[in-house]
């Protein structure tokens, strides 16, 4: 596993140029260009602001600006969901490369998160503007956010590699991925917080099975001043679970890598 990571690093020029390709191509021939990276999360936020105004019960828990809770959740979730989908589709999207040239295949998977990463950074700027607008303090905790992003990336790459590796032979997986994302949105605290769940006996399993729960909560902890989140032990559980997923992903990928081209 270390060996395959080293191979990727050795070919970092290729990694960056593939990432640059995806980013350059993303907003080609659009009028609004990179602004779409702003519009999409904001639009999602407005849907839920509107929905929750109609259902007051859901928005009653907040000590913090409701919009910031929503936006931070959407930001992190979008990054996870988009990068996970990009990684799982990357092999098929780049099948023309895989069948014609050899290079470490992991590079394709790694480089495919670039677009989502850029979207996340732009979304973060929007988030900071929202903070200023609501006159909510921004603390130095935000400096930990990059670390959280790295952990999220490990998780989304891991999960993407697992599903992506199987999707080459079993295209059924491609049908499952959007369902996973759709369900995930509602079983993760994207548009709600976990306050009311903390005391439930099954909460620990919830954290283990769905590392994104802890990752969203930790993100809010570093982004929102005074946000009450999961404790250190719960965070370590989340972390372990995310890394485990990454390791399993790479292992499965390495095992199946050689047969990819025969099924394309």
């Amino acid at each position: 596993m270390i060996k395959s990571i080293k191979e990727v690093i050795a070919e970092k020029d290729l990694l960056f140029i593939l990432a640059k390709r995806d980013i350059t191509v993303r907003y080609k021939q659009t009028v609004l260009g990179i602004l779409w990276a702003v519009i999409r999360p904001v639009a999602t936020m407005f849907v839920f602001i509107f929905a929750f105004k109609q259902i007051p019960a859901l928005s009653s828990t907040n000590k913090y600006p409701f919009q910031l809770i929503l936006f931070s959740g959407i930001l992190v979730w979008n990054y996870f969901a988009n990068s996970f989908q990009a990684v799982s589709n990357s092999l098929l999207v780049n099948s023309n490369l895989i069948s014609k040239v050899y290079f470490p295949r992991l590079i394709i998977a790694f480089s495919s998160i670039a677009v989502s990463l850029l979207d996340l950074l732009i979304g973060l700027v929007v988030y900071l503007i929202l903070c200023i607008y609501f006159q909510y303090p921004i603390t130095f905790n935000i400096l930990y956010f990059p670390l959280v992003i790295i952990v999220i990336s490990f998780f989304s790459i891991g999960l993407g590699l697992i599903l992506g590796s199987f999707s080459i032979k079993y295209r059924d997986i491609l049908q499952i991925i959007p369902i996973v994302v759709q369900y995930g949105f509602f079983v993760s605290p994207v548009v709600f917080t976990i306050d009311s769940l903390l005391n439930k006996s099954w909460f620990i399993y919830y954290l283990i099975l769905n590392p994104i729960v802890g990752l969203i909560e930790i993100s809010r902890y570093v982004l929102l001043e005074g946000y009450k989140s999961i404790n250190l032990l719960q965070f370590l559980i989340t972390l372990t679970s995310a890394f485990l997923c990454f390791i399993i992903g790479i292992t499965i990928f390495n095992k199946r890598e050689n047969s990819f081209v025969d099924h394309l």
């Binding site: 020029d13 593939l18 390709r21 350059t24 023309n96 490369l97 014609k100 290079f103």
Partner: peptide, 28 residues
Amino acid sequence: LEVGTGFHPELSGRENIFLNGAILGMTK
């Protein structure tokens, strides 16, 4: 095995030189 492996139609000739070169194993 083919000419112009990995050329992206939306990218310019200049960008594709760097892309294709990297894919074929050249450093930047």
